[in-house]
């Protein structure tokens, strides 16, 4: 896992390696099953909408739709299990503290406050993030919580009779409520937040490809993870600002293009 620490070998030409092969596979499993689950699940929830009925008709009826929903659910469950194994191997076998970077810290609250100040005009610089920003942490942990609810609720709905043997009867209608509401929340979050930061944000428009390539362009990394960028550059004994021909100029209107602050912050937060 050459992507876990802020080491010099993370640099790969004009890029910084950010995701290893497991994370990339997990993401592909996750988003393909997520899309399948959304387009087969939402019509079942909003079944009185004309478009849902048309769409269910395209699939040849709700039975086929439910079959595909169940199939995609198993793909999502596999990616969840894969990730759990990945975490355990990383922490216990390889003894790398890397996953603990995802845990929320007090610094995240301070970052959020700093960002809010920036948004409303009380400050002129947004927060600088390390390996994971508070938004990425929230995304990740929310997916974790969401998956627990979706998988738990989904399994109850998939095996209602077995579930009633273990759980009280009300768990079945409760699972339906939780499963369908949490699904709408997940889809809404993806459409609003993920769509913006992974596709529409000027740094990455039309699409942030790093989750597929595993690599982030240097200039983008400097914007998005200024603190870790500084650490990596320091580890590689490279200047913070690369020569012109290495790094194409970043459009000036991008937020957070504040060179000196990076250096201060590096001192402030050694890892």
């Amino acid at each position: 896992m050459a992507t876990s620490g802020a080491t010099a070998d993370r640099i790969d030409g004009d890029f910084i390696r950010r995701f290893d092969i497991h994370q990339r596979i997990q993401h592909i499993m996750m988003f393909s099953s997520f899309i399948m689950l959304a387009i087969t699940g939402l019509p079942m929830k909003f079944s009185d909408w004309g478009i849902s009925q048309w769409w269910i008709g395209v699939w040849g009826g709700i039975d086929n739709l439910r079959m595909v929903h169940h199939g995609a659910a198993w793909v999502m469950i596999s990616s969840f299990v894969y990730h759990a194994i990945y975490l355990v191997v990383c922490l216990v076998v390889l003894r790398r503290p890397f996953p603990t970077h995802m845990l929320p810290r007090f610094q995240d609250v301070k970052d959020l406050i700093q960002d809010v100040k920036y948004w409303v005009g009380l400050s002129d610089e947004p927060a600088k993030y390390g390996r994971f920003s508070y938004r990425e942490k929230f995304d990740y942990l929310a997916v974790g919580w969401g998956l627990l609810i979706m998988i738990g609720g989904g399994l109850i709905l998939m095996f209602p009779v077995t579930a009633a043997k273990i759980l009280p009867g009300w768990a079945i209608p409760f699972a339906l409520v939780a499963h369908s509401d949490e699904a709408v929340l997940a889809v809404g979050w993806i459409l609003i937040v993920h769509m913006y930061f992974a596709h529409l944000h000027p740094l990455v428009f039309p699409m942030n490809k790093s989750i597929f390539t595993g690599k982030v362009p240097l200039h983008q990394y400097r914007e998005e993870h200024a603190l870790e960028y500084a650490q990596i550059m320091a580890a590689a004994n490279l200047p913070l600002e690369p020569a012109e021909e290495v790094l194409s100029p970043v459009p000036a209107e991008l937020p957070g293009f504040q060179e000196p602050v990076v250096q201060e912050a590096r001192v402030a937060e050694p890892v």
Binding site: D115, V116, Y118, W119, V120, G121, P126, R135, A142, F174, V177, A178, D181, E182, V184, L185, G188, W189, I192, V193, Y196, F197, E253, P255
Partner: peptide
Amino acid sequence: GEKFFFVFTRVVLAGGVALVAGPFARK
């Protein structure tokens, strides 16, 4: 459960909107 998820989904989604609207507005 219905009541909880009614509030919960809306609060989180509002947070998501703020997260996008913030940088957007500033820009």
